[in-house]
Design a protein around this nucleic acid. Structure first.
Length: 332
DNA sequence: AAAGCTCTCAACCGCGCCGCC
DNA sequence: CGGCGGCGCGGTTGAGAGCTT
C-alpha cells in the first residue's frame, strides 16, 4: 500500500501553468505569503492545482530574483566543483548560486555540462584506455567510473581523488592547482582537517606540494587532525584519529597520504576491480570517480580562481548529514 | 516543405525527513 | 512513541521548440 496522495488528483489541473494561474499564485503569495501550508494554498488562492505544483511553480519560476538563461563560466565551475565533491545534491549546489534553482542546475547539468565533460572524458579515454569497473553495491555514483582509469594513469594528470570517510555522500574530488577542503563541522571547528597529496603516477613518485606550496591540497572529512601553515596549507595530518592507511600492494592506482611526515604512504584507490575498497580500520566510504575530463574540470575550476589573482584555493564546508544542509563554499 | 530527430526545461512523481499530535 | 501530514529533494517525463535530412 502506497502513501495517500497529497491532493485529489482527479480535481487538480496538471501541465503547464497559464499566465492567469501564475498571476493568481504570485498575487496571493505576495499578499499573504505561503502561510506555511502549500497544500491549503491553492484552494485559498483559487487555483485548481496541487500544493506541490504551486510550490514548484513559485520556487522555480515566480519568486523574485530568479535568474534564467545562460550560466556563466564561474557558475559552470562552481557546479562542476560541487558536483565532483558532493554529487547530485542540487539544492546545496543551488544555494551557492544566487538566483539559480536546483531544478535549473539539475537540468543544466543533465543537458549540457555533463555532456560537455563526458565528451571530453571520452576524448581522454581514447588516448589511454584501461579496464575499470564500478565497485560493488555502489549507490548512485555521480558519474561512471569508466574513464577514470585513464585519468589516474595519466602521469601528466595532476590531481587528487579522495573518498569521504564518514559520509555516504559521494565525495570524490578533483583538485588541480587548487585546494579543496571538506569539513563536516562548523566553520569555527575547522580543525582537524585532512588532506591528500595529488597522485602523480603509480610508481610512488609523488611530487611534493606539501613542501612547495599550497597547490593540490585536498582536504575532507572531520575527524582528522592537521595543523595549518600560515600560507593556508596543512603540514600535518592524521586521519579520523587513527591513520586509515590501506595496504594495497597490488593496487593499480596509488595515492599517497602526504602529511609532511609520512610521505608516500598509500591510501586507498584500488585498481583491483574486485577489491574496490579495502577497509582497514573502519569507516572508509567508497572511492568515487569522475567521468569527465580532468583538464576540463581543471579549467573550469581554475579559470576564475586564476583570475582571482591572490589565490586559487577553494574552501568547502559541508555537512554529510543532509538534514543539516550546511554547506559553505568560498575561496581565499 | 515536411517529416523525423534531438534538445531543453517545466512539471510531475515518489519518497525520505521532520514536526506535530 | 508511533502515526500522519506536509515539505523538500532528486529522478524522470513529456511537450514543444529547434535542428537536420
Amino acid at each position: 500500500m502506497g502513501r495517500a496522495p497529497c491532493c485529489d488528483k482527479a480535481n487538480v489541473k496538471k501541465g503547464p501553468w497559464s499566465p492567469e494561474e501564475d498571476s493568481k499564485l504570485k498575487d496571493y503569495i505576495e499578499k499573504f505569503g505561503t502561510g506555511g501550508n502549500w497544500i491549503a494554498l491553492p484552494h485559498k488562492a483559487g487555483l485548481k492545482r496541487c500544493g506541490k505544483s504551486c510550490r514548484l511553480r513559485w520556487l522555480n519560476y515566480l519568486r523574485p530574483n530568479i535568474k534564467h538563461g545562460e550560466f556563466s563560466d564561474e557558475e559552470d565551475r562552481i557546479i562542476c566543483t560541487l558536483f565532483a565533491s558532493i554529487g547530485s545534491r542540487w539544492s546545496i549546489i543551488a544555494a551557492q548560486l544566487p538566483g539559480r534553482t536546483d531544478n535549473d542546475i539539475k537540468n543544466y547539468w543533465n543537458t549540457k555540462l555533463k555532456k560537455k565533460l563526458m565528451a571530453m572524458a571520452s576524448h581522454q579515454s581514447q588516448r589511454k584506455s584501461v579496464p575499470f569497473s564500478s565497485p560493488p553495491n555502489h549507490q548512485s555514483p555521480p558519474l561512471s567510473y569508466n574513464s577514470l582509469s585513464s585519468l589516474y594513469k595519466d602521469s601528466s594528470a595532476d590531481f587528487s581523488i579522495c573518498f569521504d570517510p564518514i559520509s555516504p555522500i559521494p565525495s570524490n574530488l578533483l583538485a588541480t592547482n587548487s585546494s579543496f577542503l571538506f569539513q563536516t563541522q562548523e566553520p569555527a571547528l575547522l580543525n582537524p582537517l585532512q588532506y591528500y597529496h595529488p597522485l602523480k603516477d603509480n610508481n610512488n613518485n609523488c611530487s611534493s606540494s606539501s613542501s612547495s606550496g599550497n597547490n593540490n591540497l585536498l582536504v575532507f572529512g572531520s575527524e582528522a587532525s592537521c595543523s595549518s601553515n600560515s600560507d593556508g596549507s596543512c603540514s600535518k595530518i592524521s586521519y579520523g584519529g587513527s591513520k586509515e592507511i590501506i595496504k594495497q600492494e597490488e593496487m593499480g592506482f596509488q595515492g599517497f597520504i602526504s602529511n609532511g611526515y609520512e610521505e608516500n604512504q598509500k591510501f586507498m584507490l584500488s585498481g583491483d576491480l574486485n577489491q574496490w575498497t579495502e577497509k582497514v580500520t573502519g569507516y572508509f566510504g567508497e572511492t568515487l570517480a569522475l567521468d569527465y575530463c580532468l583538464e576540463d574540470v581543471k579549467q573550469l575550476i581554475s579559470s576564475s580562481s586564476s583570475s582571482n589573482n591572490s589565490s586559487n584555493n577553494y574552501y568547502f564546508l559541508t555537512d554529510e548529514n543532509k538534514t543539516r544542509e550546511k554547506f559553505m563554499y568560498y575561496y581565499y
